[in-house]
Simulated scan of single mutants.
Amino acid sequence: MTESYVPPKVWTWDKENGGQFASTNRPIAGATHDAPLPKGKHPWQLHSLATPNGQKVTILFEELLEAGHDAQYDAWPIRIGDGDQFGSGFVEINPNSKIPALLDLTGETPVRVFESGAILLHLAERYQAFLGAPGDRPEMLSWLMWQMGSAPYLGGGFGHFYAYAPERWEYPINRFAMETKRQLDVLDRNLAERRYMVGDSYTIADIAIWAWYGNLALGRQYDAGEFLDVESYTNVRRWAQEIDARPAVRRGRKVNRLFGDPSEQLHERHDASDFDTRTQDKLGG
């Protein structure tokens, strides 16, 4: 039997915490190096990576374009394994050093927007799209905030201890698997009576939740589909499959993707024609 960990009186950062993404975590904020961000020709400049939080924003951009809005954007990859998020340019638009981060150049003064939920709301309000019916706004916002508050249990909790921690420990895996399944049950019960999260309208709440829990239900997250028995959540899977089939979602998932099947990667996005060529750009090889 291993001895229980006894926390010191004062915690100090004297070693990395281990695991696949250990180099991306530190207990201090601020830039570590000077690195200006690139700038494209469009009024929206996105700096991101195709994690679930990054997919939310690129999916919404593609949905806006599909719906006929003038929402052209430049999407630049942030390589978190290389520490791009700690560069001075990125920290300037997101002091929290997390993707995604957006620079809004549509007005006279540049506006920074960070946190994926805030970016979704900023874009949806700007174009008055994917907000649902006026009477549904409180419900839509509730589900959007539910996702923002719940995802850390899925990604930082279950995902870390099940897939990324240097060792697998029963207690944290059980703790976060239980919470993840509870959240899936919350979604399944809601979707038993509704086509989308708020009703018949596809909104930014669906986009935000799908990026995490839709991908999970489709077996794309942490190789944990069987472990979590995702097929038992039939309403979530029905909803996830319907959204997954949307052309804008299929495009948005690929933007700033630097990993996985090369055919699913589009390292940078500057024009709709980029999806037609999908050649590996000079940044990724």
Rank of each mutant, 00 (worst) to 15 (best):
F61T: 02
N53F: 03
F21G: 11
A35W: 08
P27R: 14
T24H: 09
P36E: 03
W44D: 08
S23T: 14
G30H: 15
K39H: 06
S48M: 05
S23Q: 15
T51V: 08
Q20T: 14
A31M: 04
S23A: 15
L37W: 01
W11G: 03
K15H: 08
E16F: 05
A50G: 05
T58Q: 05
A35P: 06
G30R: 13
E62F: 14
T12A: 08
G19L: 01
F61R: 04
N25Y: 11
D14Y: 10
A29M: 09
P36N: 07
L60I: 07
H42Y: 14
G19N: 06
F61D: 02
L46C: 02
K15R: 06
Q20I: 09
F21E: 10
T12Q: 08
F21C: 13
N25G: 15
P43L: 13
G18H: 12
T32A: 11
T51Y: 12
G40P: 10
G30I: 09
H47N: 01
A22K: 13
A35G: 09
L49C: 01
R26D: 09
I28S: 13
T32Q: 11
H47I: 00
T24A: 09
Q55H: 05
F21Q: 06
A29N: 14
K39L: 07
V57L: 03
E16K: 13
A35F: 12
E16G: 03
G30E: 08
T24Q: 15
L46Y: 00
E16T: 05
P52I: 02
F61K: 04
V57D: 01
N17M: 15
L37K: 03
H33T: 07
N53Q: 08
W13S: 14
F61P: 07
S23M: 14
H42Q: 15
G30K: 15
I59P: 08
A31K: 12
N53K: 04
L49W: 02
N53C: 09
F21P: 11
W13I: 03
G54C: 01
S23R: 10
P52H: 06
G54K: 02
P27G: 13
V57M: 03
F61Y: 08
S23P: 11
T32I: 10
F61E: 04
W44R: 02
S48R: 06
H33A: 04
A22Y: 09
T58Y: 10
K41I: 05
N25W: 15
F61C: 13
Q20N: 10
A22I: 08
Q20G: 10
L46P: 00
H33E: 13
G19P: 01
S48W: 00
P36L: 06
D34W: 15
R26P: 09
A22W: 05
A29P: 13
A31C: 07
P43A: 07
K41Q: 14
K15Q: 10
I59R: 06
E62P: 10
Q20V: 12
W13Q: 10
W44M: 12
A35V: 08
E62A: 15
A35K: 12
L60D: 03
I59S: 07
N25I: 15
